[in-house]
Design a binder for these strands. Structure first.
Length: 446
DNA sequence: TTGACTCAACATCCTTTGCTACAA
DNA sequence: TTGTAGGTTTCCATGTTGAGTCA
């Protein structure tokens, strides 16, 4: 009889029925068996069921869990859950930060009632999920990551640990939830989803699409986007109303000279080297050339000098002074692109700073003080963009940033938790005029 | 257990012009 | 005609994280 079993991230098929031919089924001459990548398990059983072939399934033996929740889903959360269920328990749900993605996943766990793996990008998120799940469910919550390797009926794992464990435990879960699922498009991380057999799959993110197009890979591994709401769909109702104010500043004479000089070096190289610069891929080409072409390298370094000048312009610091003054009674988060500037601002305005160099303990204490109101301001580069539970603020100042739509959405999301007094949130975007930053800013606004 | 360290992985990185092939 | 997409061969720098190692 045909037998299916999980083996090292694959589904091993012994004695396949006659005439069974599937594009993803490969014979493995070394062991004399037939195999499929584990993530094809659901498709494989669908075909076998359709053919009325009797088979012995030793993969889907994870049993069931009896779970219940006290959560009352909001309308849109219920819709999201139903859309996912209607798509055979696969797919990505796109909801803005603060819209309660976790709750949707909890609803799905209750509905499925099978051992579940939750995969998250950071240890911080791992802790949050564990806390939430432990409060909600009466089962042991396991953990892979942060120095702990304990499997439970429901287990929360970092992407890194999941990558290391997937071929081993990939047959133990009937449901997998990928938080911040856009990470799954990364070259290495996508293997996690390939090595898991779980037929039910849910991806959660605020920004599904990736500039490199890898969301298509994610859609193949987890399922297509089945439900999406953006910030504007929920603002005023479940999220705070907000305004975006764009402030343009100029460069000083010295900065302008430095910027123009560097930019000219860059553009000049493009002109004389037959290099079009229309997409990220073209930029990548320049990077490759710079490996053995000194002129290309010089052009690239010049471009970086120009970026530094425009993103860290002195006038931005002056403008920040005014903004901080105007919002003396508000809770403000200041974002930059470079850590240098974070420390410069921290010194000048006596702002608590958080960067990658800030240790875990110090970071926790700082955010705690921000939460309780001891601090009303904080300055950071990219640390607080994602995966950290950031206390509520109502004013964000984006002094500089990348052209990433995702980064912008995440930063905006930091001020959108509904305000008790119904106040509107406010995001300042400070842009250096007559520089490439105008393009950068346009790109991130989609 | 903690802290300092190293390493690997991931993400971003984009001028203003013309050319070609192809689809609508 | 008009508009739009076009294709790929290991990597300049900066920011950030998780895992692993060692004291």
């Amino acid at each position: 009889m045909t037998t299916l079993s999980f083996e090292d991230g694959t589904i091993r098929v012994d004695d396949p029925p006659d005439g069974l031919s599937l594009p993803f089924l490969e014979s493995d001459p070394r062991s004399g068996t037939t195999r499929a990548p584990a993530f094809r398990y659901a498709a494989l059983t669908d075909v076998l069921d359709g053919r009325d072939d009797a088979y012995d399934d030793r993969v889907g033996t994870w049993g069931s869990l009896s779970l219940s929740t006290a959560y009352e889903l909001r309308d849109y959360q219920r819709e999201a859950l139903e859309a996912w269920q209607a798509n055979h328990h696969r797919g990505v749900i796109e909801l803005p930060t603060g819209a309660g993605k976790t709750v949707v996943a909890i609803g799905a766990m209750v509905a499925r009632g099978v051992p579940t793996l939750v995969v998250v990008p950071t240890v911080d998120l791992l802790t949050q999920w564990r806390r939430e799940l432990a409060a909600e469910f009466d089962v042991e919550i396991g953990q892979f990551g942060g120095g702990v390797q304990e499997q439970g009926p429901i287990t929360v794992s970092t992407y890194d640990s999941a990558y290391l464990r997937a071929d081993d435990v990939g047959g133990d879960f009937g449901f997998v939830v990928f938080d911040e699922v856009h990470h799954l498009g990364g070259e290495g991380y996508r293997d996690i989803a390939r090595l898991l057999a779980a037929p039910a799959r849910m991806g959660l993110t605020a920004t599904f699409e990736r500039p490199d197009g890898a969301h298509e890979v994610v859609a193949e591994l987890v399922g297509p986007r089945v439900f999406a709401l953006d910030v504007d769909d929920l603002s005023g109702d479940h999220l705070a109303d907000y305004d975006i104010k764009r402030i343009e500043v100029g460069l000083s004479a010295a900065e302008r000279e430095a910027y123009d000089e560097a930019q000219e070096t860059f553009v000049d190289y493009l002109r004389t080297s037959n290099l079009d610069m229309r997409s990220g891929a073209d930029y990548q080409k320049l990077v490759m050339r710079s490996g053995n072409d000194p002129r290309a390298r010089e052009a690239l370094l010049a471009k970086q000098r120009a970026r530094r000048v425009m993103m860290n312009a002195d006038a931005k610091v002056d403008r920040l002074a005014e903004i901080l003054d105007r919002h003396r009674d508000d809770r403000v988060i200041v974002f930059t692109a470079h850590t240098d500037l974070v420390y410069r601002l921290s010194e000048r305005f006596l702002l608590p700073a958080i960067t990658n160099e800030t240790g875990a303990a110090e970071r926790r204490e700082l955010l705690d003080r921000f939460r309780t109101g001891t601090y009303s301001r904080v300055v950071t580069a990219n640390v607080l963009d994602e995966g950290v539970d950031v206390p509520d603020a109502n004013v964000a100042v984006v002094l500089s940033g990348s052209g990433s739509e995702r980064e912008f959405t995440q930063r905006l999301g930091r001020i959108l938790r509904p305000k008790a007094d119904g106040r509107r949130a406010l995001l300042y975007e400070v842009v250096t005029e007559e520089t490439a930053e105008e393009n950068v800013a346009a790109r991130r606004r989609g």
